[in-house]
């Protein structure tokens, strides 16, 4: 299912957050939404499942305007992994089962239970199934939340900084997992990210936001040192490493990043 955002603008009260944003994501594709803090990444993601209503412009889900759909209909097509989840005091199995909410009527069906079991096996979460979610580590919790999103059987997956609270190993594990799910089930995935190298590693296309506007969009070729300096205000170099592009900030060129006492020319470790 193609998700396309057309001329979308959004404002909180009188404060404009997004202006004339256009972007599109297709099945089998991971689109990374990049940009500095406050650029409107999370707001854009929330507009994509109608959690926020844009002031102008539309979000099209396939052929349909998302605002013409009910919440339940949206939830059957679009799953959302928020940046922060309040861990409820239930077992992982129950927490994942909650993802069936858009499909269940009065009560869960045996099929719902089995679908949760499928996801648990695919994610190798069997060892966690009957453990309580509120006692889990950040990485485990994130996997449970992603499992809950997948058991919704969505066609579009929205992830808000899915790796922000994870250690290095878990970051790559989660991203590899998301990529394989996207390709296996032909999902359309959009995620906001801060880590440019993680984005370059796993995403297929990129949307760079700056002050609520799309500054650049496209494949890996749009990620240039010039562009990153313009969007983030940090001079970087891009190097090939192991067959892929790696962004390396060289902070010494920027006076604002120098610590007091640093002599000019000292490379700051990032």
């Amino acid at each position: 299912m193609i998700l396309s955002v057309q001329d979308l603008s959004f404002r909180y009260n009188s404060h404009p957050v997004l202006q004339d944003v256009r972007c599109e994501a297709r099945p089998d594709e991971i689109v990374a939404i990049l940009g500095p803090n406050g650029a409107g990444k999370t707001t854009l993601l929330r507009c994509m499942n109608a959690m926020l209503r844009p002031k102008t412009g539309t979000v099209m889900l396939g052929e349909q305007d998302i605002l013409s759909l009910s919440r339940r209909e949206i939830a059957r097509s679009v799953a959302h992994v928020p940046q922060h989840t309040e861990p409820p005091r239930v077992t992982a199995f129950d927490a994942i089962l909650l993802g069936r909410r858009p499909w269940i009527g009065m009560n869960v069906h045996q099929d719902d239970i089995l679908k949760v079991q499928v996801i648990i096996e695919q994610l190798h979460l069997s060892g966690l199934a009957l453990r309580h979610v509120d006692a889990m580590s950040g990485g485990e919790l994130q996997k449970i939340v992603i499992a809950r999103a997948l058991v919704q059987e969505p066609r579009v997956l929205l992830l808000d900084e899915p790796t922000s609270s994870l250690d290095l190993k878990n970051q790559h594990e989660i991203m590899r997992f998301i990529r394989s799910v996207v390709h296996t089930h032909h999902l359309t995935a959009l995620m906001t990210m801060h880590d440019l190298n993680l984005a370059l590693h796993y995403a297929d296309r990129f949307v760079l936001l700056k002050e609520g506007m799309v500054y650049a969009a496209g494949g890996e070729e749009v990620i240039t040192p010039k562009l990153i300096e313009e969007v983030y205000g940090v001079p970087v170099a891009i190097r090939r490493w192991g067959g892929r592009n790696v962004v390396v900030p060289h902070a010494d060129a920027d006076d604002s990043l120098r610590l007091p006492g640093d002599s000019p020319g000292t490379v700051m470790s990032m």
Binding site: N49, M51, S70, R71, R72, E73, I74, A75, R76, V78, A79, H80, P82, H84, T85, E86, P87, P88, A95, L98, G99, R101, P102, V145, Q152
Partner: peptide, 10 residues
């Protein structure tokens, strides 16, 4: 699980 999760579940 919080309002945001609840809304995304319809």
């Amino acid at each position: 699980s919080g309002d945001e999760t609840a809304k995304s579940l319809g």
